[in-house]
Deep mutational scan, measured.
Amino acid sequence: GATAVSEWTEYKTADGKTYYYNNRTEESTWEKPQELK
């Protein structure tokens, strides 16, 4: 299949934890999204 550009962006909180934000759905998660595995 075609490689889609991930909708997920990786961010870090002030205390250094990583989370992921989906630009399309406006969803955020602590877990690494399936698309990034």
Rank of each mutant, 00 (worst) to 15 (best):
T29P: 01
K32D: 04
E35D: 11
T18L: 10
N22D: 01
W30P: 06
E31T: 10
K37E: 14
N23A: 14
A14W: 08
G1D: 12
Y20A: 00
E10Q: 08
Y21T: 04
Y21R: 05
A2W: 11
Y19H: 04
Y19D: 01
G16V: 00
A2D: 12
N23S: 15
G16I: 00
R24Y: 11
N23V: 12
S28G: 11
Y19K: 04
L36S: 05
A2H: 14
T25D: 01
R24D: 05
A14F: 04
K17S: 05
T29Y: 07
G1H: 13
A2N: 13
N23D: 08
N23E: 11
E10K: 05
R24S: 09
W30I: 07
K37M: 15
P33K: 01
Y11S: 04
Y20P: 01
Y20E: 00
Y20K: 00
W30E: 07
E35G: 10
D15A: 07
A14M: 08
K17F: 07
E27W: 02
K32W: 04
G1K: 07
T25K: 03
A4G: 11
L36T: 05
D15C: 15
E31S: 06
S28L: 15
Y19F: 12
K37N: 14
T13S: 08
A2Y: 11
A14L: 10
A14G: 06
K32L: 09
G1M: 14
P33Y: 03
R24E: 08
E7V: 07
K17N: 06
R24V: 14
K37D: 15
Y19R: 05
T29I: 08
N23W: 15
W8L: 01
E35T: 06
V5F: 13
K17E: 08
N23R: 11
Y11L: 15
T3P: 13
E31W: 06
T25H: 01
Y19C: 15
K37C: 15
T9M: 11
T25W: 03
T13V: 03
E35C: 15
E31Q: 09
T18F: 10
S28A: 11
W8N: 00
A14E: 10
S6W: 09
T29M: 08
A4V: 13
S28F: 15
G1F: 14
E27F: 04
Q34H: 11
N22L: 01
P33M: 02
P33Q: 03
S28T: 15
Y21M: 04
D15V: 02
K37S: 15
K17Q: 11
G1S: 13
E31A: 06
P33A: 02
T18Q: 04
V5D: 11
E35R: 03
T9W: 09
E35A: 11
K37R: 13
A14R: 07
T9K: 11
N22E: 01
Y21P: 01
E31H: 07
T18K: 06
Y19P: 01
T3Y: 05
K32Q: 08
T29S: 11
E7L: 06
W8G: 00
V5Q: 14
K37G: 14
P33T: 02
W8S: 00
W30M: 08
Y11V: 14
N23M: 12
P33V: 02
A14S: 11
G1Y: 11
E7S: 05
K17V: 10
R24M: 10
S6L: 10
P33L: 02
Y11A: 05
E10L: 05
E27P: 00
Y11M: 15
E7R: 03
R24A: 09
A2E: 13
Y21E: 03
N23Y: 12
T18P: 05
A2C: 15
R24F: 14
E7Y: 08
Y20D: 00
S28I: 15
